[in-house]
């Protein structure tokens, strides 16, 4: 594929993404405006307490360190030439971005800062969404791998895997929280 073809393809991909995104953004904006007019409370926007805000900031910093470590490890492996990468730079970059997002989301989920305090009742639907989206992307990735589009397939499987892991983490956090709620209070400060 020549560079001009690649450029054309990139422009087309960006255009296709915009075609998908713009109606969604317009829909969300119109719904928000309608809600404001009706005077309904906006629960779609997460509201976090001070503890959650702090946890989210810490998780962001940890994700940042993870991404830097990933880049340095990649650099060392590239120079050592011990691993002969089949994947393209874009795939590896996307994998790094996904890893960082997974660390960030994972820490937020495990420390109870993923959903705002006004969104706790949406937890079950959030878990279902994670599993559904994860399964979809994994399936599409497998189909692409089978169709010999290795790079795209790997990327989609990674994305699907990230969503599935987030779903599992959310289930685990929910189970742990429920166990803690069911445990009798010993009276010495521990629940």
């Amino acid at each position: 594929m020549s560079p001009s073809d690649k450029a054309l393809l990139t422009v087309l991909v960006v255009f296709a993404i915009l075609v998908w995104l713009l109606p969604m953004i317009a829909g969300i904006y119109m719904e928000e405006q309608e809600r404001k007019k009706r005077g309904e409370p906006d629960n779609s926007k997460a509201q976090y307490d001070e503890r959650q805000k702090l946890i989210r900031l810490e998780a962001g910093t940890h994700a940042f360190y993870t991404l830097i470590a990933y880049l340095l490890i990649w650099l060392v492996l590239e120079f050592a030439d011990v691993l002969h990468w089949e994947a393209r730079t874009v795939t590896l970059l996307a994998a790094g971005v996904m890893l960082a997002m997974l660390v960030w989301n994972g820490e937020c989920i495990l420390r109870g800062a993923m959903l705002g305090f006004n969104q706790q009742k949406n937890e079950a639907s959030q878990i279902t969404t994670y599993f559904a989206v994860g399964a979809c992307w994994t399936l599409i990735g497998c189909v692409n791998l089978a169709a010999m589009s290795g790079s795209l397939g790997t990327l989609q499987i990674l994305m699907g895997g990230s969503y599935l892991i987030m779903g599992v983490l959310m289930l685990y956090a929910r189970r742990k929280r429920r166990q803690a709620e069911c445990r009798p209070d010993t009276g010495d400060g521990e629940t």
């Binding site: 702090l54 989210r56 900031l57 910093t61 940042f64 991404l67 830097i68 960082a100 960030w104």
Partner: peptide, 11 residues
């Protein structure tokens, strides 16, 4: 912490 978070977004 905020600076770390912003650095992540920039990265």
């Amino acid at each position: 912490l905020r600076a770390g978070s912003r650095a992540m977004y920039a990265l």
